[in-house]
Design a protein around this nucleic acid. Structure first.
Lengths: 337, 337
DNA sequence: TTGAAAGCGCTAACAA
DNA sequence: TTGTTAGCGCTTTCAA
């Protein structure tokens, strides 16, 4: 079929090992030979067989990434960061989606292992509650780094947005504008970062000595398609009247704004809204959405760097690193007029 | 390191070949043996080494996808469709981004080949002008299917939106609403689908006997970040006054609306705007954007099906298939009040 | 129904 | 600096 090292070797009257060395720019080899070999390789359009090489060296030069969904721009950006750095270091990246399903997630994990991923970056699905499948991986020597979403109870290598700080900043912003009845549209309880955003919200209230009211915290699905009129109705029935909303994500915040406007509520005059994540929709909705940004691209870069460090120093460092990527408040029209 | 067929064999007192057969559910083998082997495999958490297997069988069960950018939701959706079908058929998918650069694109192509992709799905970068690198692939026996973006001059297997029909529908919609001075914000000339959208625009004008005016066709970058005030200024200086805009993409259309509003122009009263692609931003901008949708998910599915057909009947069918996925007009507030 | 042996393409000791 | 040899883990003849 396609051309192999053996073919090159026989055409040049060299041994396969010499050709291999020449192709890999080995130092103990004649420069002239290198040129000769590489010239013919190019001519014949030789392409190295990565698996044969991987089989021999046990280095696949491949890492895996599992995200809940590529359709989420946040992950699209993270992956761009990951690929950027990985490719620079000569690593390929295999991207999988879990579609927020544990079953699929486990399947993808297995596939990645069977394909010889040297390390795995994962942002767990909303459903995932057990760390078992993943800890098994680590025991078998494949390092794992969590990014964006991790387990709340497990100490593991991870890179996260500083969700706590971000939730705090968002809420503080509303408080400093005079809001005292701030609702929080919260994400699922099992996702640590959603939880942390909520913690930030609670902490900010505490610091401003505003009592927490449970009815102001409404759990919503992260799928903004599933956003329901119900949520806004519930919100508007609360008394004393809600004057600020901190939403767990920008799409949710945008949906809220759209629904609020439909109900005749003026944003920001009557209710101020802050989102989370600096999604592009926030720049389009009117009023433009105030939000906190998580710098997904940077997060991807931090995550893959951490993973590569571990992969390169295989086995070393029993310690665990947790990196927080700073969040930043972006003030737009949905809170200030 | 990790557990191999040999390990299983020695623990069971069987030969590696028997174990291999048992794991692959070969028919010429005792059912009891199969059970025994698979039980132990599960116990010891055996994971097949895909490369070793690929090296032997020449079947990698892997296909590659190259897209300009994952950040473009269109491609994110297409890829979801691709992965869905591919995974169902037991294929893995390797996703690469070209970042709209030919150089990177070629590099990714090489990597995919070296990694043993059995077929490649590609949506070419805005820069790519030569078909050479890709035809080389096909000669070496790796089938290629283009999707969404292909070369205008080359007959190849491809799945595209019916850009022509979509451009026609969009323009026809504006014409039927009474617009007679319709500007077209066009994409780069080397992308066939951009060209086809323009052709649809031209054809619709012709059918309505509206003369084409070159100054109404303004070429813009596809990167909506790079959208310039200039474009709108130029647009507003044209006389007789522009009363409709057909933009090559939704982000461009949205940018236009935002800039028009900034200039005090009322949409749709003074200028009606139609986009292309049914991007989520279109549902958020005010007025909501009228657009034509390309069904990216379906396109991904069609493309991967076509590829898998070719891969499965390797070498067969010297003929070339071109599939057009129907586009559909979605009327919203940016054209009707 | 099972086993022995060979080989996919590559690389790394070791020897020359 | 180059060649010889062996083997990564798997599958597949061929023989038993």
């Amino acid at each position: 079929m396609s051309i192999t090292i053996k073919d090159l070797a026989s055409q040049l009257g060299l041994s396969p090992s010499t050709v291999s060395r020449a192709l890999n720019n080995n130092k103990n080899i004649n420069q002239a030979t290198i040129r000769k070999v590489q010239k013919l390789a190019k001519e014949l359009n030789y392409k190295k067989n990565n698996w044969a090489s991987a089989l021999r060296t046990k280095k696949t030069k491949m890492i895996g990434v599992i995200v809940p969904s590529l359709k989420n721009p946040f992950f699209a950006h993270t992956i761009s960061g990951i690929q950027e750095v990985a490719n620079e270091k000569g690593y390929r990246v295999m991207i999988c989606q879990s579609n927020e399903s544990v079953e699929l997630e486990t399947h993808q994990l297995n596939t990645l292992v069977a394909s010889g991923a040297e390390g795995i970056l994962i942002s767990i699905s909303g459903e995932t509650e057990s760390y078992e499948a993943i800890s098994e991986l680590e025991e078998s020597g494949i390092p794992v780094v969590f990014f964006d979403r991790a387990f709340k109870s497990v100490k593991a290598n991870q890179v996260e947005a500083d969700d706590y700080g971000a939730g705090f900043k968002a809420t503080q912003h509303l408080l400093s504008l005079g809001c005292r009845n701030i609702a929080h549209l919260a994400g699922p309880e099992n996702l640590r970062n959603c939880l942390n955003r909520k913690e930030g919200y609670l902490q900010a209230l505490k610091q401003f000595k505003v009592p927490v009211r449970e009815e102001l915290i409404i759990e919503v699905s992260l799928e903004s398609d599933e956003f329901e009129d119900e949520v806004i109705k519930k919100l508007l029935e609360i008394s004393p009247k809600v004057d600020g909303v901190f939403a767990v994500s920008d799409p949710i915040a945008v949906q809220s704004i759209l629904h609020l406007k439909k109900q005749g509520v003026k944003v920001p005059e009557q209710i101020k809204v802050v989102g989370f994540g600096n999604d592009s929709v926030g720049e389009v909705v009117e009023p433009n959405l105030t939000t906190v940004t998580q710098n997904p691209y940077d997060m991807g870069i931090e995550a893959v760097k951490l993973l590569m460090d571990i992969v390169d120093n295989a086995g070393f460092s029993k310690s665990v690193k947790q990196i927080f990527v700073d969040a930043e408040l972006i003030v737009r029209d949905s809170t200030i007029n």
